[in-house]
Design a protein around this nucleic acid. Structure first.
Length: 418
RNA sequence: GUGGGUAUAGCUCAGCUGGUAGAGCAUCCGGUUGUGGUCCGGAAGGCCGCGGGUUCAAGCCCCGUUACUCACCCCA
């Protein structure tokens, strides 16, 4: 190429057709969430660097884009190099999720918010990852969160609203896998895993469906976890479903947490809930229920969430229960594909070169006032390409504007169907 | 962070064993059509990603580099 003009790595431009289908999907999601009693808020794209790196973002913290302080001097850079703390040069960063900003938002505005606050956030986040299919460095998340509700009603409202949104989008085949951090904690305790190994052990367990029982046993062994019944327990976990405790519950199962999951399932008969004791989720801040949207065609999740009762307390001082669910908007849109919803109310007027502009605009204005969407296009040699582009942009009808004195009465509209 | 693939016209891609840079579509022009989505002809459009090397000669072979892409890790 003569001039390499591409957007930043992992970030994208959207052509009119893409933009239209994105906006359509966003409108559907907004409507679903709002119908379930959630209110939309907005926060800045940046937060204080210290807040982003407070340990609540898990591994995502390492992927945060940092923003350098304004007015840095060479001496500052030298000092940072000296100390080895390059992040000292940054005081702000782009948010890598919507949960940390929400916790900050709630701490700031608690007095103005209802006791139980149901929030919608639909906004881009940034992560400095290596892009690939279904993974971008700027992407939109659609979050709903309930703050101040410690009971299962929070989970129920979140999952119900999310399932409704997926349904309204026409997405079929999705299921929601569900688990509870307490079940994982009990399992690790049963194996007498040292607390500092918990996170790494959980990541290994998460891979059970990919690498199988033998693979997990091997990797756990590598971490020094080799209690006698590891393989036996894993076999039980691999087979576990909603019948896990039909007879005597297995020793690794936290029965209180499992009872909660059964209650959730009973409360939402219309939602395809799958109990998956290997579901982990990377965020360290989850304390209870965790869930993830799965689709049979994809190796990655379409969204996820869970309960994070300890997080708000980090900003506020007093603990406030919270639970959230996030839809990965980009992955949903990729799945939906383009819906070229053409409209009969959108028309193209094809005019000959040299047609009087004033007459064209007057004609256009007449049609606009009738409620039509009107685009003017000068006739090209090959009209076919022009009309196909217009059809792709959502225009449903076209008419040729004759030379001479074009008037509305002279227009003969034809369908752009083909 | 680790590994694979790709890079040629605005777009999609050919280019043989190293020997003058190609097609389709899109664009522009001429004609045809003349209530028109047809057809014919022509033109324009290229640092063959970038840098080095081998060679009489490199789009092609070698080394490096950058970008894109797919997968792993992790994630939405």
């Amino acid at each position: 190429m003569a001039t390499p003009v591409t957007p930043p790595r992992g970030m994208r431009d959207f052509l009119p057709a893409d933009k239209a289908s994105r906006e359509h999907a966003l409108a559907v999601i907004r409507r679903s969430f709002a119908a379930h009693g959630f209110d939309e808020i907005e926060t800045p794209v940046m937060e204080d660097a210290a807040r982003l790196h407070s340990g609540l973002g898990g591994d995502n913290e390492k992927l945060a884009f940092a923003v350098m302080k304004r007015g840095l001097k060479p001496a500052d850079a030298a000092a940072a190099a000296e100390s080895g703390d390059l992040l000292a040069l940054a005081d702000l960063g782009l948010r890598f999720d919507l949960t940390v900003p929400l916790a900050r938002f709630y701490a700031t505005h608690r007095a103005e918010l209802p006791t139980v606050f149901r929030a919608i956030q639909i906004a881009p986040v940034w992560r400095a990852e290596r892009p690939q299919k279904g993974r971008y460095r700027q992407f939109v998340q659609c979050d709903i969160d309930i703050i101040g509700e410690s009971g299962l009603l929070a989970e129920i409202e979140l999952i119900t609203a999310t399932a409704a949104a997926l349904d309204a989008l026409g997405l079929t085949g999705c299921s929601i896998r569900i688990n509870d951090r307490r079940i994982l904690t009990t399992l690790l305790a049963h194996w007498k895993v040292a607390p500092e190994l918990n996170e790494r052990a959980l990541i290994v367990i998460d891979k059970l469906d990919k690498i199988g029982v033998d693979g997990v046993v091997a990797e756990l062994g590598g971490l020094g976890i080799s209690t006698a019944d590891v393989a036996e327990t894993l076999n039980g976990i691999a087979d576990a479903g909603w019948n896990a405790a039909d007879s005597a519950p297995p020793v690794w199962l936290d029965t209180d947490a499992y009872a909660d999951l059964l209650a959730l399932r009973a409360a939402m008969p219309g939602v395809r809930l799958v109990f998956d004791p290997t579901l982990v989720r990377g965020m360290g801040y989850y304390t209870g229920t965790i869930f993830e949207i799965s689709h049979p065609d994809l190796g990655y999740s379409l969204g996820g969430g869970g309960r994070y009762d300890g997080m708000i307390g980090r900003f506020l001082g007093t603990d406030v229960p919270a639970c959230g669910f996030s839809i990965g908007f980009e992955r949903i849109v990729d799945l939906l594909g383009a819906d070229a919803a053409s409209s009969e109310n959108a028309v193209v007027l094809v005019y000959e070169k040299g047609t009087d502009s004033a007459q064209l605009v007057a004609l256009k204005q007449t049609l606009v006032e009738q409620g039509l969407r009107v685009r003017l296009e000068q006739r090209t040699k090959n009209v076919k390409a022009l009309l196909e582009r217009a059809a792709g942009a959502g225009y449903g009808r076209y008419a040729f504007v004759g030379n001479g004195a074009p008037g509305e009465a002279d227009l003969e509209f034809r369908s752009l169907g083909g």
